[in-house]
Write a protein that binds this DNA or RNA. Structure first.
Lengths: 187, 187
DNA sequence: ACCTGAACACCGTTCAAGT
DNA sequence: ACCTGAACACCGTTCAAGT
């Protein structure tokens, strides 16, 4: 009969994310997640269908961490806030973050974030039929940088250097977006 | 006493790479590599110190696959050839390629490739003190795209669309490189 | 020097059983 | 409905032993 649940999917994901943040992806075992929740490993399978499903859940969690920026900012400010949020999320969750490159971002929150970028690009004057492609390139560059940074490709470089690189990257992208304005630009 | 070796590190890496290409990273087990070589799993440990070392070896292998382009080409052509080689290598080795984001490229071959990019950038007129940073940003963007493509982030998009995106990415980067020329530009 | 056989700790996952 | 105990196939890795 009905027995009160001791854990739920949310708690499983929360425990798993904390574990991955603290001990890396190879510290993320079903047994370790279960122990953190005071439960046997097999209890988890009522809430996630298997480990792949658990990882999918973690990726969804991450996509939630960069919500659309405040609408009252200018478009360059909004894109900059967004990029910084992405980078900060990568630093918080270095192991799980790399998984973002493995699946299309199809959750509701991811869609909202993408729409926010579309809006900024449209406001910047990017032609409607190019907006989706420009969003893809810009996201790829930011994501590629953030993953490289937390996964270890830049481990030879100082934090100071990486901050400067990230600024330069944003400059690069802003310049590209301006240039994608079919009305041209002058300033 | 001296016994003729039946296998060497090279053959271990070759077998491992083929296995990963065919069956993905989770099909790459020590047992499977050994079987492919007609040997017991424990025999491998004489040639690689452990599985992490084996993966490091595979990454080194990949870095070998995009050699510096022919010097007689113009700098935009050389960068374009290089970018295409990177993308082609990603498509040949989809599972292993993602690991490239995890370590700094410090092998001899990787250094030669980087030097080739430096040379192209210098020829394009990028200021000497900015060459290293521009190289990092350009490489990150190309690598980020290639990894996204083979790891699955773009799985919703057609090959046609991705080809167009890659072209646009190269245009973006060429524009940035031109703009980084301190002498300005006119055409 | 190189490979093997037996063994160990650990992993994800199943199934039937308990409440 | 939710959790447990026992069990299974598989994994990376060790060590002593064979040639």
């Amino acid at each position: 009969m009905g027995r009160p649940p001791r854990i739920g999917r949310d708690q499983v994901l929360t425990a798993a994310l904390a574990l991955a943040d603290d001990h890396g992806l190879e510290g993320l075992t079903m047994a370790a997640v279960a122990e953190r929740l005071g439960v046997t490993p097999m209890a988890l399978y009522r809430h996630v269908s298997n480990k792949a499903d658990l990882l999918d859940g973690l990726v969804e969690r991450l996509l939630t961490e960069f919500p659309p920026p405040p609408a009252e900012l200018s478009w360059p400010e909004r894109l900059s806030v967004l990029a910084s949020n992405v980078r900060a999320s990568a630093r918080r969750h270095p192991s799980v973050f790399s998984l973002l490159l493995q699946r299309p971002a199809t959750t509701k929150e991811a869609r909202a974030t993408r729409q926010a970028v579309y809006a900024a690009l449209a406001e910047a004057g990017v032609a409607e039929e190019r907006v989706a492609q420009v969003e893809r390139l810009v996201s790829t560059a930011v994501l590629g940088f953030a993953v490289s940074e937390v996964a270890g490709r830049f481990s030879r470089h100082s934090r100071r250097q990486l901050d400067a690189d990230f600024d330069a990257l944003q400059g690069l992208l802003a310049g590209f977006i301006q240039a994608a304005d079919p009305a041209g630009r002058e300033d």
